[in-house]
């Protein structure tokens, strides 16, 4: 089980969008807004093959972070978090393997089920790989204010 702090888990469960940052071949951070899907242990994001550059970066360098920063995307909450961790790509079945996360995805974006039924209209959008993040550290700002140093939790260890 995850040892992410409760407020962080709540943010993950509420967030309609978070910012996944990966590191490209030149060592630069590259940020992608994506829907975080949390199963209580790992954080998942899905990526269409159309927008799969991020997958190339992760395969070359699995160190990533996921931030939840936008109050609008978390029903008005003002706390913020950046979760660092290692990612792996799950792509055994780009056609349907990702659908095991559909129930969590549907809770955040109910329309996805409708679009999936009409996948003939945009078939490549539904050819997707999973990004599985194993959290290693969480930086949490209870008031969302960068003027205050975040509370740091090393996952699986005591809070710093």
């Amino acid at each position: 089980m995850s040892t992410l702090p409760d407020p962080v888990e709540q943010l993950l469960e509420a967030a309609l969008v978070g910012e996944l940052t990966v590191v490209d071949g030149s060592g630069h951070p590259v940020t992608y807004p994506l829907i975080p899907l949390y199963d209580g242990e790992k954080i998942y994001l899905t990526s269409s093959t159309l927008f799969s550059r991020k997958l190339e970066h992760i395969k070359a360098n699995p160190k990533v972070s996921l931030s939840i920063t936008d109050p609008v995307a978390v029903d008005g909450r003002t706390d913020r978090v950046t979760i660092q961790g290692d990612a792996r790509i799950i792509e055994e079945d780009p056609h349907g393997g990702w659908e095991r996360l559909l129930p969590i995805w549907e809770k955040k974006e109910p329309s996805i089920v409708y679009f999936l039924k009409a996948r003939v209209a945009l078939p490549l959008f539904f050819e997707r790989s999973l990004i599985e993040i194993t959290p290693s550290r969480a930086l949490y700002w209870p008031d969302g204010n960068a003027a205050t140093a975040p509370t740091t939790t090393v996952v699986g260890k005591a809070a710093a």
Binding site: E19, S67, T69, S136, A146
Partner: peptide, 19 residues
């Protein structure tokens, strides 16, 4: 309304801070 500053820390992980 706000921006997210991101850089790669000394351990090689990205860090993001909203400001």
């Amino acid at each position: 309304p706000f921006q997210v500053l991101t850089f790669v820390d000394e351990n090689g992980y990205p860090v993001s801070v909203a400001l």
